[in-house]
Computed example of a mutant assay.
Amino acid sequence: MSLDVEFTKDGHVARVTLNRHQSLNAITPQMDDALFAAWNDINDDPDIRVAILSATGEKAFCAGADVSGATENADRRMALGGGLTGVGGPLLTLRKPLVAAVQGYVIGGGCELAMCADIVVAADTAQFGIPETKVGIIGEAGIMHRAMRQLPHHIALAMILTGERVPAAKAELYGLVNEVVPYADLSAAAERWAQKVAAGSPLAVQAAKDAALSRLGWPLDVALATRYEPIEAYASSKDRLEGRAAFAEKRAPQWQGR
């Protein structure tokens, strides 16, 4: 694991932290590889129920890809976020819920990385931006496709065409983030959201995420008629029996994730 990406596990929560604040947490190829390894580890660990993505330093969550070495790395196409975004590489689907805690500059690929999260908590210092056209660097269009799907039509196009940044308060108004808090409370807020997610049946949570997202771009009648394998598998799981028993016995369920 790259020193610029910290990866730890604490109980049922995995924590992935961009740790290159001196460079606005811009993602290098080595960080990209480390993120890819972290997402796969989270997917493969049955004890992990939720992940938190954050970054060190108050000035920026992430300024996107590090283009300072663009010449010597001309043949290297990063899958920004380690494949989570699908930019420059295969799209990696994170089956576990992801909470992003963002602050300061959340721009370019960093903005797309935040959009990949299921829940986004923002410090009141956060500024979201898609600067490609403004700075004259236009390549992969992943962030644009996500913006058009996650933001109101004209808001997304204004961000794409002008490169102007959207402050945290407006991002919350537009539905891009779930909660805005003072920077000092950002970590605690992300932890609170993660614990809310972890309190649910992990298999049910993962099945719900799969069902909600896998047919997002399909007509409603197709989505309603689809049989979802994770939901089918959950029907015969120990956790389903535990949920029913806990409800009948009026006690908190003890999930096993199996």
Rank of each mutant, 00 (worst) to 15 (best):
R49Q: 11
R49V: 07
R49D: 14
V50Y: 07
A51H: 05
A51L: 05
A51V: 13
A51R: 08
I52N: 07
I52A: 09
L53F: 04
L53P: 12
L53A: 06
S54D: 15
S54F: 09
A55V: 06
A55D: 00
A55Y: 04
T56C: 15
T56N: 14
T56W: 11
G57Q: 01
G57P: 08
E58I: 14
E58N: 09
K59A: 12
K59R: 10
A60G: 04
A60T: 01
A60W: 01
A60S: 08
A60H: 01
F61E: 01
F61I: 04
C62D: 10
C62P: 10
A63V: 15
A63Y: 07
A63M: 13
G64F: 03
G64K: 00
G64C: 02
G64M: 00
A65Q: 08
A65W: 10
D66S: 05
D66K: 02
V67Y: 14
V67S: 08
V67Q: 06
G69K: 15
G69P: 05
G69L: 06
G69H: 14
G69E: 07
T71D: 09
T71P: 09
T71E: 06
T71M: 09
T71G: 14
E72D: 15
E72N: 11
E72K: 10
N73W: 10
N73A: 05
N73G: 11
N73Q: 13
N73S: 10
N73H: 14
A74L: 10
A74M: 07
A74R: 05
A74K: 06
R76F: 12
R76I: 11
R76S: 13
R76T: 10
R77A: 12
R77I: 11
R77T: 11
M78Y: 02
M78R: 09
M78F: 03
M78H: 06
A79E: 02
A79S: 09
A79W: 01
A79Y: 01
L80T: 05
G82K: 01
G82R: 01
G83L: 01
G83D: 01
G83N: 01
G83E: 00
L84Y: 12
L84I: 12
L84K: 04
L84S: 10
L84E: 02
T85P: 04
T85V: 03
